[in-house]
């Protein structure tokens, strides 16, 4: 192979092809920077626009939509936090996300471990049912789900949507753990068993730490899915006190549609948590979410 390459190399030195010509190369380079660059700007500019417009007044905004703020007008944000009480909705979302994270990590680890390590009687059935999730769009079965939620008395509780979201996330997470555990040699547990460690102890003190990388990935995927969840909240919550941030946003918009900067401030505050997390951990987040997408 390498010899082959060398021989081609020596040939290419003699004839200069198009790609090597400096002008063409420069032109290509400009395009390569410009096209994705412009697209990247369209991805970030709306957010930037929301951000700086949040510091403007309604009148300033209606005169010139694009202009930068003349001075730091903070009333919009003050309104968002005091009158709209966005903090409460952020808290609701955060609380749900926290519990979902804990439960998804725990149960996907357990399920993934068992499915990967052992052959047991109902293994295939278990596997198949968890697979079903990929073919059932929850949006299609909102009506029976809603009736079910009401019938088990889960409606309008702060924890209403925790279990549904856990189940929604479980499938991908389980498969991720399963394929990861397959790479961990079973000798680890065997040695522990010989040392007299109980099964449960081995599971949580020896296997769990080795699965840490995949659990981080699952954590990232679950966080964003849960934080952005909408359909279950839509059917589970009637009381505004329990609204998650997505649901609350839905209500704000209908009501204050004259005051654009104020809505923008609200939207921006809702984007904030994701934005901060993303700018801190973008590489891990991209990797994690991609792993989830492909394996799931």
């Amino acid at each position: 192979m390498s010899e082959h390459v060398k021989s081609i190399n020596s040939v290419s030195k003699k004839r200069h092809n198009n790609a090597e010509r400096p002008i063409v190369k420069l032109f290509a380079r400009i395009l390569l920077y410009a096209i994705p660059g412009i697209y990247a700007i369209t991805c970030i500019f709306p957010i930037v626009w929301l951000f700086y417009t949040s510091f403007r007044t309604k009148t300033q905004f209606s005169k010139n939509v694009l202009a930068l703020p003349e001075y730091l007008y903070l009333e919009n944000f003050k309104y968002v936090f005091t009158e709209l009480n966005v903090g409460r909705y952020l808290f609701n979302s955060a609380r749900i996300t926290f519990f979902v994270l804990v439960l998804v990590l725990l149960f996907s680890f357990i399920n993934g471990y068992f499915i990967s390590r052992f052959r047991f009687r109902f293994r295939n059935i278990l596997y198949a049912t968890y697979m079903c999730n990929l073919f059932i769009p929850i949006h299609a079965v909102l009506v029976p789900t809603y009736i079910l939620i009401v019938k088990v008395g889960l409606q309008d509780k702060w924890y209403s949507i925790i279990l549904p979201i856990v189940c929604m996330e479980l499938t991908t997470a389980t498969f991720l753990v399963q394929s990861y555990i397959a790479t961990v040699p079973p000798q680890l547990e065997e040695a522990a068993a010989i040392d007299g460690s109980s099964f449960t102890r081995t599971l949580f003190t020896i296997i769990l730490p080795t699965a840490k990388p995949i659990l981080v990935t699952i954590g990232i995927i679950t966080f964003f899915h849960c934080w952005n969840e909408f359909a279950y909240s839509l059917i589970a919550y009637q009381n505004e006190k329990n609204f998650t941030i997505s649901l609350a946003l839905m209500r704000f918009k209908g009501e204050y549609f004259t005051d654009y900067p104020r809505i923008m401030a609200t939207i921006f505050v809702c984007i904030m948590p994701a934005l901060i997390l993303y700018s801190l951990f973008s590489q891990q987040i991209i990797k994690g979410m991609m792993a989830g997408a492909i394996k799931g």
Binding site: P36, A40, I44, N228, F230, I267
Partner: peptide, 15 residues
């Protein structure tokens, strides 16, 4: 560029 272009993925559909 990749990082910036990926950002909208992390936002909710409502936003």
């Amino acid at each position: 560029f990749r990082t910036v272009i990926y950002f909208p993925v992390t936002l909710s559909a409502v936003i």
